[in-house]
Each structure stands twice: as C-alpha cells, then as structure tokens.
C-alpha cells in the first residue's frame, strides 16, 4: 500500500451520473489485484471530511494507469466529478484483499448491481489473460440502460453476458436476480462459484439463491470507512465464526470480499 499523488489522465462522463476517472500510478497499477480499492482524499478542504473508498475498475500495466468507475451521489463523488485531466489526486492504495482468485471455479458467475459492476472488469481482464480455463458469466443489472455504463467494455472478456433492467430499456426487463435464478440450473454446483457486488438487498438475494443451489457465493461489501487501512475499526462487517460466535471484521482490511455464508448481514446499509 502506498500514498501517491497521482495525475488524472482521462475523464469521461456517462449518462445516469457515472464517471470514469483514470489516473497515473506505476506503483498502484503494478500492485493492484482484482477487487481491491483505493481511498481518495477527494477534497483537500473539509467537505467531505473523510476519504472516499472507490473500487479499482481496471488497470493498464503498460500505460501504468488505473481506472475508476464512479457513481456521482454525494459530496465526495461530486468533488471527483470536478477533477480535470492534469489535476492531482491524493490516493492511498491498493487496499483490501480483493477477490480470492483461487476461489474461481470453472464456471464463475459475476453478478453485478449498478455501480457494483466496476471491479468485475479488471477481474475479467485478469482471468482472460490468465492460463486457467475459466468461463466467466456476467449478470449485470440496473434500473435502466444508463446503469450499465461499462457493458461494452466486457466484450470478449466473458463467455456469456446477460443484462437486466427494471424499466426494460436494456436486456431483460426485471431484476438481475431473476435472470440469475432462471439460469442456475445450467451450471453444475460443484463447478460453479458466484462473485457478487451491488446493493445490500441484491447481494443478500443472490446469496439466498446461491445457498439454495449449493453454490459458493462471495460478496464485495461497501461501507462507510474511516481510514481504509485497518486502523479505525469503523467499517466492520458482522460475521459468525465456526462456533457461531459473533465477531466484527474490517471491510477495508479483512475484506472487502467476504464468503457470504459468514455474514450476519446485521447493520449493512
């Protein structure tokens, strides 16, 4: 993990309030693994007070750049929206453990809700460039077409891709969890793993579907973080250990990806 002052090298706005920022950092690009995140001081003044954790969407090791897909929702992300090419950002990263690449099954289902799709691009690129024979299947959902800004970037990286939108403007009309449910019969549970990232109710629903089919399910959590580096214990997720005793693990340092069967889901927003 490093603290870097990194230059913004590209910036693209999408419909629906999505933003892709690309910054230059040899150190972070080189060290980053799929599912890790960076913690950005979005504004040197006090609004907002805390850094903002943003998952790493993609890495270009030739150009030594890292890209972030951001949904602009509050003061932190608004501050990032105002960043221009050439501006410098104070960034800590890469942080967290990311996805356990040893947990990839021959069929790995990537289930994304809205902005939760972000980390799956780098995961897909890493798997596509790797030597293991793994078939990735992307299931991406959103309220409408605008919530799938990176859909085209997955072209050629996954074996299959399915989309669902609540308004029917792209892919199947409805929830991505329903599309997933209909498809699960096709996969041998012993040869399948689900990686999921999205809103909490959606991840909980995906876990319930997965457990019903006996498929391992790993979820990438998002919480309010204080430090992002394991110090403040503010971002914890509540888990059950083997003896069913409750414990609290840091989303930033012990996660952000957890085996969903360990979570109590208590207090998750």
């Amino acid at each position: 993990m490093k603290k870097v002052i990194a230059k913004v090298v590209s910036r693209r706005l999408f419909d629906g309030g999505y933003l892709r920022l690309q910054f230059e950092s040899d150190e972070i690009a080189h060290a980053a693994k799929p599912g890790q995140f960076v913690n950005i001081l979005t504004n040197p003044s006090l609004k907002p007070y805390l850094r903002r954790p943003i998952s790493i969407e993609d890495v270009d090791n030739d150009k030594k750049t890292v890209s972030l897909l951001i949904k602009v929702v509050g003061p932190g992300t608004q501050s990032l929206e105002s960043a221009q090419v050439g501006d410098q950002l104070d960034i800590l990263g890469p942080l967290g453990n990311g996805f356990d690449m040893d947990s990839l099954a021959p069929n790995t289902l990537l289930v994304a809700g809205g902005i939760g799709v972000a980390p799956f691009l780098y995961l897909s690129r890493t798997v596509a460039g790797g030597s293991k024979e793994i078939f990735l299947h992307l299931y991406a959902g959103g309220a409408s077409k605008a919530d799938l800004p990176s859909w085209d970037d997955f072209h050629g990286l996954t074996a299959t891709r399915k989309a669902a939108t609540e308004d029917g403007s792209f892919g199947k009309k409805g929830l991505v969890t329903d599309v997933l449910k209909n498809d699960l019969g096709k996969f041998d549970p012993k040869q399948t793993t689900i990686f999921c990232c999205g809103p909490t109710p959606m991840m909980k629903a995906v876990f319930d579907i997965a457990i019903g089919c006996g498929i391992p399910c790993f979820v990438s959590l998002e919480t309010t973080m204080g430090c992002g580096i394991g110090s403040c214990l503010g971002c914890v997720a509540q888990i059950k250990d083997q003896d069913d005793a409750i414990d609290h693990l840091r989303v930033c340092k012990d996660g952000p990806v957890f085996d969903a069967s360990r979570l109590t889901w208590e207090g998750m927003r």
């Binding site: 609004k47 007070y49 309010t224 503010g234 509540q238 609290h248 207090g267």
Partner: peptide, 19 residues
C-alpha cells in the same frame, strides 16, 4: 468484539463513531 455496525457517520468537519 465491539458494537454492531454501522459504527461511523461523517458530519460537517468531523466524524461520529461508536466502535
């Protein structure tokens, strides 16, 4: 093991915690 989450809330120029 501390308190259940959520434990943090950002405020104007500050931070509330109940770790």
């Amino acid at each position: 093991i501390g308190n259940a989450p959520p434990r943090l809330h950002e405020t104007a120029s500050g931070l509330l915690n109940s770790i």
